[in-house]
Write a protein that binds this DNA or RNA. Sequence first.
DNA 1: CTCACATATGCTCAGAATGAGCATTGGAGA
DNA 2: TCTCCAATGCTCATTCTGAGCATATGTGAG
Lengths: 324, 324
Amino acid sequence: MPDAAIGLNAVIVAVTEEVPRILTIRREPPGGGPAEDALPFGPLEPETDRTLDRGLRRWVREQTGLELGYVEQLYTFGDRNRDPRESHGGPRLVSVAYLALVREVSVSGGARWRDWYEFFPWEDWRDGHPGVLDRSIAPALDPWAASAAEPRGRQERQERAEIVFGLGGVGWDGERVLERYEILYEAGLVPEARRDRIERGEKEMLPSGTPEPPLGRPMSLDHRRILATALGRLRGKLKYRPVVFELLPPTFTLLQLQRVVEALSGVRLHKQNFRRLVENAGLVEGTGRLDAETGGRPAELFGFRREVLRERPAPGVGLPGVRR
Amino acid sequence: MPDAAIGLNAVIVAVTEEVPRILTIRREPPGGGPAEDALPFGPLEPETDRTLDRGLRRWVREQTGLELGYVEQLYTFGDRNRDPRESHGGPRLVSVAYLALVREVSVSGGARWRDWYEFFPWEDWRDGHPGVLDRSIAPALDPWAASAAEPRGRQERQERAEIVFGLGGVGWDGERVLERYEILYEAGLVPEARRDRIERGEKEMLPSGTPEPPLGRPMSLDHRRILATALGRLRGKLKYRPVVFELLPPTFTLLQLQRVVEALSGVRLHKQNFRRLVENAGLVEGTGRLDAETGGRPAELFGFRREVLRERPAPGVGLPGVRR
DNA sequence: CTCACATATGCTCAGAATGAGCATTGGAGA
DNA sequence: TCTCCAATGCTCATTCTGAGCATATGTGAG
């Protein structure tokens, strides 16, 4: 087998003060130019790393001093030319991306936490319909759809944009983060699209240039794509696995819990119903202690009930009509 | 980066006559001995394969003549010593596994279709509680739990076995295929466990030897683990994405549809409720034509309504109390 | 000390979705 | 024409959800 290099990328997520954050590093682009944000990454050391996720934990520890707890494999990215150095004789770079959930702590090295909605401003619906959507995205997608070669292509683009961005009467699906990013990329609306074409030495083919201000903060290589994958996956997982608790301190109020879920899912929830669900799904148990920091009536502190994992097979879903 | 080789594995699934099948090949074990079943696999050609899944489609076509349609990335397996040749100076083998859904066709080459419950007989609950569970598995897990070094370990193993196999009053969770396989492996109850130890030159440490007859048909390397991952994932996906239709002819009766879902999920469904769900989720539309082959009243033929993908964001789930 | 305020927590109610099972329909073949 | 077999239709109790009103219990201002 010809050579390929295996890299490991980490999307490390924390939520503090209702802001979902990811750990980023600064990185010089391979072709030169100003430093960009990037996801932390490191190589797999085939000799020493017994498993992929051990390798990941190892270099995250080495680079940032952070000891990862919950880690899950996300996706493996292996398209050609993910790294422009490939076109100059570099090896094919295949990256296995991981999602890690931590409680925010200060990190050493050049790493820093960033609000992940800086990268995807259109994904935050907590304060209602995000402005960028109507201001920048929707108007830019029309010409993109119109610029398809054939009438069928126009129709398809139009429809795809509507579905994925929930434009017409269609509802917003919080999980389709990657599909949205990919449309923006295809339409040349994110800076990465132009950058990649130039780096690959292709002639300029993008219709209009990226809008000003650019749609979200760009990232190195295909890291924003990886990040989009992570966000979509995490939003999906929230619905059927109790992973939020990885992001919370051992004890928390129900509103804190709700705020974290809202931060990740990007939507507001109905408070009473949320607590009803969480309580009679048996996900939490009261500690009897109170938190006086609420500004109103003090809230009870709850903890995650690990036993749920035992009681209910999959806290969440089910097939239509399973016979029992 | 030291060298690592990238392989691609395919779990190719079809369902015919209510039997879920996967495509297997015969393969000589690296250490010699009789041929074993294996998943089809091939290398990524970094020079020619623009993306990982194109590489997959290419060699599947070359090896079996099969043209894949629906393909989804499953998981990347990269533990050390997945292939025993690594311990003899071979490169670290990292495999990206894919799940493909096809309509069964005859295949060329050495490939053949096999009922996937041959590999996991305990996963088929369509005719009620599978016999192997009480006959072989449950009795063998008790000594395994008891053999843990510390009391806490015993407790943990006991509990884990109960949860994962739904032994006590706990319910059966069809998606935990991998966890079940892993327990059986750890407990040394599948032939692969012993084989791998011997191949790695470890001294025999397994408590009792694998039971006779062995639990399910063994596979090469860690392929049964990959298969378990695929089954679990597919079962999960069935619940929230209309993927079944990839396995069905363009037109089908509702009972055919139900049988395919049952074959995959391994449980029986309530007929009337199943059709109610499927119909008013808008997943299918009647064609007006009838199928007279039923043996009873003729059934209407239905087709998949592709428009659902457009209408409902995610045919399936939702967060507790999303405000609208 | 009392009151306004802010949030926590409790509770109700209508409507939708789900689990079960009975009833009716329409062919095929005796 | 009758019987068997599955398809299809429908009902009913139960549970789950979405919304919103009501009450409880702190803090801080006056």
